[in-house]
Simulated assay, not measured.
Amino acid sequence: MSNSSVAPSSFEFTVFSDLGSLRYLFFCLCLLLFMTIISANVVIILSVCLEKSLHQPMYIFICCLSLNSVYGSVGFFPRFLMDLLSDAHLISRPFCFTQMYVIYTYVGHEVSLLTVMAYDRLVAICQPLHYHSKMTFWAVLSLLVFTVLYPVFILSYFFYLSISLSLCGNALKHIYCTNWSILLLSCVDKVVNNITGQCLAVASVFIPLFFILYSYLRILLVCRRSSAEFRGKALQTCLPHILTFMNFCISVFIEISLSLYKVDDVNPIDVIVLSLEFLIIPPISNPLVYGLNLPQIRTAHRHFRNNKELCVYMRCS
């Protein structure tokens, strides 16, 4: 192997070098967004964990969705905030692949959770008499294990191929490590990686998408034959999930489009904004969608806040 194809020990994010004094504005805005994401999702997590009336499958899945948002945000923002203020934007090879693993598994867990939540709504609306017999504690636990292990299993071989690639450069034209940006540095044929990537897309995106669409087609057919009151209740429980799923699909589509587009022709600020949309909008919108649309979570949050204020008052008095 020639010296030009030796695997680099570190990568450089070239997008940050063109920001100039705007980096400080971006830092303040992104720090505020990071704190908002963590705070909003922690409120959902605490509301579900502390309120016994919310210890039901649907709310447990919502809690896991918020946990995944915290996982993805913590895996991305600290390094990103450091890059905004730093003059050197180097990231070590192991940390680069670790960051990529966290972000990709965050996406995989999000898709799996949305799929499981669609199944939960399918059983609740289409088979209400069998809901409690099907969505038992062990069934919910098995579904949660599936949401965690399925993306890891799907991504394992894909990451092995990416790590073993011979690279001829270290400049990444992105704000975080992505498989596509690393593939562009490859010195060898990328056919196997491209085929693996297509299979990964089918297994991790299109199959869950097909199941979610199938679930809502079944729900729609049941609602057509039901009363207006039943349709109203079904819409109330399904609307947050539909909004979350559509929002996530749009975010992923933007990120995939950005990866396939020649970023050399795109303004660096546009690259940062579009990439952040993928990592900011779903985590910050999920608590708002579920917190505003589901009265049970609003009530639990109000009850939790009142208890906290009472404890503070008693402590002060």
Rank of each mutant, 00 (worst) to 15 (best):
S2I: 10
V15P: 09
L22E: 15
L25R: 15
L29I: 10
C30E: 15
L31E: 13
L32E: 13
M35C: 12
I38C: 14
S39W: 03
S39F: 02
V43A: 11
I44G: 05
S47V: 00
L50D: 10
L50W: 10
K52V: 04
L65Y: 09
S73W: 14
S73L: 09
P78K: 07
R79T: 11
R79E: 13
M82V: 05
D83V: 05
A88H: 15
A88L: 07
H89Y: 02
I91N: 00
S92V: 06
F97I: 02
T98L: 12
T98A: 11
Q99I: 06
M100Y: 12
Y101E: 06
I103S: 11
Y106R: 06
V107A: 14
E110Y: 05
V111R: 04
L114A: 04
L114K: 06
A118P: 02
D120A: 01
L122V: 12
L122T: 07
A124V: 08
H130C: 05
S133R: 07
S133T: 14
S133N: 07
L141K: 07
S142A: 14
S142K: 13
L143P: 08
L144C: 11
V145D: 00
T147Q: 03
T147R: 03
Y150A: 05
S156N: 13
S156C: 12
Y160H: 08
L161V: 00
I163C: 08
S166Y: 08
L167T: 09
N170Y: 11
A171Q: 14
I175C: 09
W180R: 10
L184P: 01
L184W: 05
L185C: 04
C187W: 03
C187K: 01
D189W: 06
V191K: 09
V192L: 07
N193P: 00
N194H: 03
T196S: 08
G197F: 10
A203C: 12
F206P: 05
F211P: 05
I212S: 01
Y216W: 12
Y216G: 01
E229M: 09
G232L: 02
G232V: 00
G232T: 01
T237R: 01
C238P: 00
L239D: 00
L243Y: 04
L243A: 02
N247I: 02
F248P: 02
F248Q: 04
I250N: 02
V252G: 07
K262D: 15
V263H: 10
D265G: 03
V266T: 03
N267E: 10
P268T: 04
I269G: 01
E277N: 09
F278D: 09
L279R: 06
L279H: 08
I280A: 06
L294Y: 10
P295L: 00
H301D: 11
N306Q: 08
C311F: 14
V312M: 11
S317W: 15
